[in-house]
Amino acid sequence: MKIQCVIVDDEQPARDELRYLLSRYDDVQVTGEADSAGKAVSLIKKITPDLVFLDIQMPGKNGFDVIAELAGHTPMPLFVFATAYDNYAVKAFEESAVDYIMKPFSEKRLDITLGRIRNLLIEEPKESGDLQTTLQELLNKMGTPRETVKVSVEKNGRIQLLAPQEIVFCSCESNGICIHTHDEVFTMYGIATMDKLAEHLAGAPFFRTHRAVLVNLDCIREFSPWFNGKYNLIMNDSKSTELTVSRTRVKAFKQRLGI
């Protein structure tokens, strides 16, 4: 029996690399690929694969959104997550009936993963309901640390801790990252790059409108199409700050908002 699998990743090189590695296994067949959460859900429902290699961090909806949207679908495939999450998250994966692989992909780790998948599919097949419960437990575990995320900022020589919901948007400036709340601006403390800040806030409703700006989607007052395919945002801070969504990120922005 061949294991029918789907690869979900927004980056073509990552999909190509994993497809190549999987081609070494006679009992594995890649039957489809998707580059977004929405396409992944549609594809999985259509072809009902045995296994899905699922990237966690994608523009717009992420890998966990895929699991949530498949709730109640039968048969539910097994999932292998591509992750760069911390040790807490890895522990949650290890305790569940799914598996994970770290990027960049390791052939040795892939061997171990596929061995486990074979056992689950052939020697220890799980009922769809059991897998649904396991995946929900995983989502709950992944949600726990996100609730306590804080952002460290500096003002007048003192360090303050902000909750994500207090932040309207973040911007890269010449003096570092600035954190904008409703009526104040702080200097980021302890995180030097926007990539790291975006990763730190991965569980909160933030979106990169372009490389230098990260916005809180809950703090957008209104938005409208702008010139050259861009979007213009008006935030709900005291200054009604206007920000731009770059043309290349408009599609992901609309997907994130479900429009």
Rank of each mutant, 00 (worst) to 15 (best):
R208I: 02
R256M: 06
Y85A: 12
V90M: 14
V6F: 06
R15T: 03
A71K: 11
E199Y: 11
V6A: 05
V245I: 05
Y25C: 02
F186N: 11
K108Y: 03
I101T: 14
A212K: 04
L217M: 13
F206D: 01
F206C: 12
Y85T: 02
V66N: 11
E242G: 03
A212T: 06
N87S: 14
K2C: 12
V8A: 08
V28Y: 06
E222R: 15
T187L: 12
K61C: 08
N87W: 09
E95I: 11
V168M: 00
K108I: 04
Y100P: 10
L70A: 00
E184V: 12
C172F: 14
C170G: 03
I234W: 01
F79V: 11
E154N: 09
L43M: 14
I220V: 15
R19M: 06
Q29T: 09
W226A: 14
D130T: 12
D10V: 05
F206E: 08
D183F: 13
Y88T: 14
E137I: 05
G32C: 13
T187N: 13
G258F: 04
G157W: 10
I159D: 07
H73R: 13
I101Q: 03
F169L: 06
L18G: 04
F253C: 02
N228Y: 09
K254N: 07
L138V: 07
H200V: 06
M188C: 13
Q57Y: 02
L214W: 07
V168W: 00
E94P: 07
H73K: 02
Y189M: 07
D10N: 07
E127K: 12
I234D: 04
L110I: 03
D183R: 13
Q57H: 02
S171L: 08
F227V: 09
P77C: 07
F206R: 03
L233P: 15
A163V: 13
I259N: 11
I167M: 03
I220C: 14
V6P: 04
T74K: 15
I101M: 15
P205L: 03
T181N: 01
F79E: 02
C5K: 06
I122F: 15
T248F: 04
M76L: 11
E154A: 08
D16R: 06
M235L: 09
H73S: 14
V151R: 07
G190F: 05
D9G: 10
L18A: 06
P77V: 06
I101Y: 12
Q57S: 00
T134V: 09
F105C: 01
E94W: 06
Q12A: 14
N175Y: 06
V80W: 14
K46W: 05
K239P: 00
D237M: 01
K155N: 01
Y231G: 03
C172M: 12
F93G: 11
S96I: 04
A192Y: 07
V41W: 04
L21H: 07
